[in-house]
Write a protein that binds this DNA or RNA. Structure first.
Length: 883
DNA sequence: CACTCCCGCCAATTA
DNA sequence: TAATTGGCGGGAGTG
């Protein structure tokens, strides 16, 4: 069609048509003869599908026009006719065409032919529904836009919706990665769970609601102001930082899309009318429900609906209510999500032996959580995808365990409405305004990203560490616990084994450099205590803050915590920078930004993964889960890792890993949890960064008791490059947080703790490089400016020194929910200097690339530092080379 | 006239 | 500063 237009247009009014692009030109030179093509095209466009070939041709043909078009636009327009010589040049062709075309011209494309739905079909036709995992398909926006003959803006509409379902993920600027529908059921499941939580509750409670519904409907607007909204989905984006996050409008289309899908999944009838959906989705605005707003929302819903229709997930129907017939859409996609889903939350089937704890915890969590909380999680959905790093994503929460059905039927919508209301009410309370961040998180989890990512599992792992039962992972646990809800389960599943696991994997590896992470862990058990708290965001914040001292909150908090209200702490500024970014993540890890280099290095070795990993991580933010999945998927390697993990996990595996994601979320939710510190490396210095979690300590405080598990380890590390010298630090548990304190002690303690106690208690550990440490220490605080450093952190200073002596093992990190890493200690002896061996372990952790050689790390080091920040969002793909 | 929703301006973000 | 993203709403096509 477009083509036609163009052709036609070109001559005459060039304008519209194509505007765009020119850019694409891919091949075309202006010169080429263009023209003719038109005809070819002419066919009616029957299917959208027709292959691109035609399109391309057209495009090419058009392209010249396009270019001209600008000129023409202006010029011609007036002239309109073309003939004029003026622009001959450009015209030439056109003219010619015109003649030819003229007739055609007439045909107009008809609005329908240009519909977003059709365009989306064309778009989808270009990619396989179930691409091989191995292949990654990257989508270039410019290219697609030109091929399809539309403006880029339209592509964004499509991609944003697809991204919300994880069919694609953003990899870098202008580049998206096609994942296909492999993860679709998982994503839907997540959305369903998230939807149930959010909406479900409400609904459940009120079932009835029809009444409400009606009311709702009637009033719709009025009532609702929704103040808030919870975010249904929200995604919090991670990155965004908390801070701004809200503001960013961005997400809206993505978020709205997720919410919209949630409504279908939650509703019994599977039919959602546009107006109800619009009302529900409006929330954001708090009140203000202007009519105009409503209108706008509806417009957007049509956009989304067109894409979903193209995906075959919904179809248009009309519901006639008393009042009349209203446009509505019916869900025709899958309703049940087998697989993994279940597990997610719940039980983990497989694996988790212990999970009980975790799980249990999780569950509880969930429960509680569900209720209200939403945490924001940052995870991203996207995360799932590996690729990206994008920011975007959100995650949702999952959870919901069962679903029951709620009721009835039809009314679901109604219910929804009711729910909404409730929520609103609630929200109001809850949220504060900002929340935005908060929102929910849906996380996605697992998505694996397919190939993109790579997680790395640790390969070798060693984790040895702890043997303790506590597994190192504990961390994750902690996390997990939090996470619990949804995530956990998921994790577990994954864990189970299989490869799947991978995805879940708890760990992440980072490449070197810069990363760090931390997690807070917390107890596994649910820490009920905590958790509860967590539940409320608000609480969280408060609590978190309180509990945690400053540290905690900081960055991470930002996301989460902050979201609620206080985000503040977070870093404000900092965040931006790299660290921040990471920070936000809740737990997970952070990735360095830049990995590029490092990553590369890493990647190579490791596998390509590393890079990917990073990315993933980023994206996920912590969501780790995702990453893991991704990894898994990808995975080949993963498997190994997985295994390893498993082993390691065994101990704790459960939770963490998979769950992690969720956990993370939870964490997020919960305020406490995560606290991390981040240490940045200085630039040059070190290579490491770390994060520490404050939480834990706090946790310890809080959690500690309960918690248990141990696992929790909070920390992670990463080495940066070089390994060599890294100091590490650990904090002992914190029971006394302080303890760590001083240097001297520090070391000792540290070491000791390290392994054990820390784990057990959850102490946070820190590791850093020396350099880092030192400096950082102080600095660290800076990171969070606001808060004072936490005790644990405090350590650092001390550590520093000591650290130096010591080396950590590897720097690995773990993420969040992740994973942890182990550190190893060389343990105990912290001090020992380098002698320790660092190497291997390190490698381990390292990540991919690193694995291989240390050297690389070193290299990276330098780089690493620098990179960091940027990363987040976009990654480039550099890394993974391997792939 | 109501329903759809294309189109593209332009602000927010990024690079 | 330039480019990329994406919110948003006017207003046109359809029935």
């Amino acid at each position: 069609e477009n083509i036609f237009d163009r052709s036609r247009m070109a001559p005459k009014t060039p304008i519209k048509n194509e505007p765009i692009d020119l850019s694409k030109q891919k091949g075309c030179t202006p010169e080429r003869n263009p023209i003719t093509p038109v005809k070819i095209i002419d066919r009616p466009q029957p299917d959208p599908w027709t292959p691109t070939a035609n399109l391309k041709i057209l495009v090419s043909a058009a392209s010249p026009d396009m270019r001209d078009r600008e000129k023409k636009k202006e010029l011609f327009r007036p002239i309109e006719n073309s003939e004029q010589s003026d622009t001959l040049d450009s015209l030439q062709y056109d003219i010619v065409d015109d003649s030819t075309v003229d007739e055609f011209e007439k045909q107009r494309p008809s609005r329908k032919q240009k519909s977003l739905g059709l365009l989306c079909q064309k778009f989808l036709a270009r990619y396989p529904n179930y691409p091989l995992s191995t292949e990654k398909t990257t989508i270039s926006l410019d290219e697609v836009a030109s091929i399809l003959g539309v403006e880029r803006r339209r592509i964004y509409d499509i991609v944003n919706v697809l991204e919300s379902l994880h069919l694609v993920s953003r990899v870098a600027k202008n580049q998206y990665c096609w994942h296909g529908r492999h993860n679709l059921s998982q994503t839907l499941k997540m959305l369903q769970e998230a939807g149930e939580l959010q909406y479900g509750e409400l609904m459940a409670s009120q079932h009835k609601e029809q009444d409400l519904e009606y009311k709702f409907g009637e009033r719709r607007k009025e009532t609702i102001p929704d103040s808030q909204d919870r975010p249904l989905l929200d995604f919090s984006e991670p990155d965004c930082s908390s801070a701004s996050a809200n503001s960013r409008k961005d997400k809206s289309l993505r978020i709205m899309s997720q919410k919209f899908v949630m409504l279908f999944l939650v509703s019994k009838t599977k039919i959602v009318t546009l107006d109800i959906a619009a009302k529900i989705l409006i929330e954001e605005t708090q009140d203000t429900v202007d009519h105009s707003k409503f209108k706008t929302k509806v417009r957007r819903l049509y956009d989304i609906a067109n894409v979903l229709t193209s995906l075959g997930l919904i179809k248009k129907v009309h519901v006639t209510e008393e009042r009349g017939r209203k446009p509505a859409f019916k869900w025709i996609g899958p309703v049940e999500f087998p697989e993994r889903t279940d597990e997610l939350r719940g039980h983990s089937p497989t694996s988790d032996p212990l999970p009980g704890t975790q799980r249990g915890a999780c569950v509880q969590y969930q429960t509680s959580a569900t209720g209200k909380q939403r945490f924001t999680r940052h995870t991203s959905f996207n995360s799932a995808q590996p690729c990206e790093a994008t920011r975007r994503k959100v995650s949702s929460e999952p959870n919901s365990p069962h679903q029951e059905k709620q009721d009835e039927n039809c009314s679901k919508m109604i219910n929804l409405a009711a729910v909404c209301r409730q929520k609103i009410e609630e929200d109001t309370g809850l949220n504060s305004a900002k929340n935005s961040n908060i929102t929910l998180p849906l996380s996605l989890l697992p998505v694996p990203g397919d190939s993109d990512f790579c997680v790395n599992p640790l390969p070798q792992a060693v984790f040895p560490v702890v043997q303790a039962d506590v597994p190192s992972f504990s961390l994750p646990i902690g996390i997990s616990s939090q996470a619990s809800h949804p995530s956990t389960p998921a994790a577990s599943k994954t864990e189970n084994g299989k490869p799947t696991l991978v995805p879940n994997q708890p760990f992440l590896c980072f490449p070197s450099s810069s990363l760090f992470m931390l997690c807070g862990g917390l107890q596994e058990n649910n820490s009920s205590e905590l958790l509860p708290a967590a539940g409320d965001l608000g609480n969280r914040n408060a609590e978190a803050q309180a509990a945690v001292p400053p540290t905690v909150c900081q960055k991470r908090s930002s996301h989460k915590c902050s979201s609620p209200s206080a985000p503040v702490d977070d870093e404000e500024p900092a965040p931006k920078k790299q660290t921040l970014e990471h920070s936000f993540l809740p737990l997970s890890l952070v990735v360095p930004k830049e990995p590029s280099e490092s990553s590369k290095a890493e990647s190579s070795p490791g596998s390509g993964c590393s890079a990917a990993v990073h990315l993933e991580m980023d994206r996920f933010d912590l969501a780790s889960p995702v990453a893991p999945e991704a990894a898994s998927k990808e995975s080949v390697k993963p498997s190994d890792c997985q295994e390893q993990e498993k082993q390691s996990q065994n101990k704790d595996p459960h939770e963490p890993p998979p769950g992690n994601e969720r956990i993370s979320k939870e964490n997020a939710n919960q305020p406490f949890q995560p606290q991390y510190l981040y240490v940045q490396p200085t630039a040059g210095l070190s290579s490491f960064n770390f994060l520490i979690s404050a939480n834990q300590a706090p946790g310890a405080i809080s959690l500690a008791a309960n918690q248990m598990p141990s696992l929790s380890v909070p920390c992670v590390m990463v080495p940066s490059a070089a390994l060599a010298s890294f100091p590490l630090v650990c904090s002992p548990s914190f029971t006394s947080p302080l303890s760590p304190a001083p240097d001297g002690s520090f070391s000792a303690a540290a070491s000791t703790n390290f392994s054990m106690s820390s784990l057990a208690s959850t102490t946070p550990v820190l590791i850093s490089t020396t350099a880092v440490v030192t400096p950082k220490v102080s600095p660290a605080p800076p990171v969070d400016p606001q808060q004072p450093p936490h005790p644990a952190l405090h350590l650092s200073p001390v550590l520093t020194r000591s650290c130096s002596a010591v080396k950590l093992d590897s720097p690995v990190c773990v993420g969040h929910p992740v994973t942890l890493l182990k550190l190893q200690q060389p343990s105990s002896a912290p001090l020992t200097p380098k002698s320790i061996r660092p190497a291997h372990h390190e490698a381990f952790f390292k990540t991919p690339g690193s694995l291989e050689d240390p050297v690389a790390w070193k290299k990276n080091e330098g780089n690493q530092t620098r990179n960091a920040s940027s990363v987040q969002r976009r990654l480039e793909i550099s890394s993974t080379s391997p792939d």
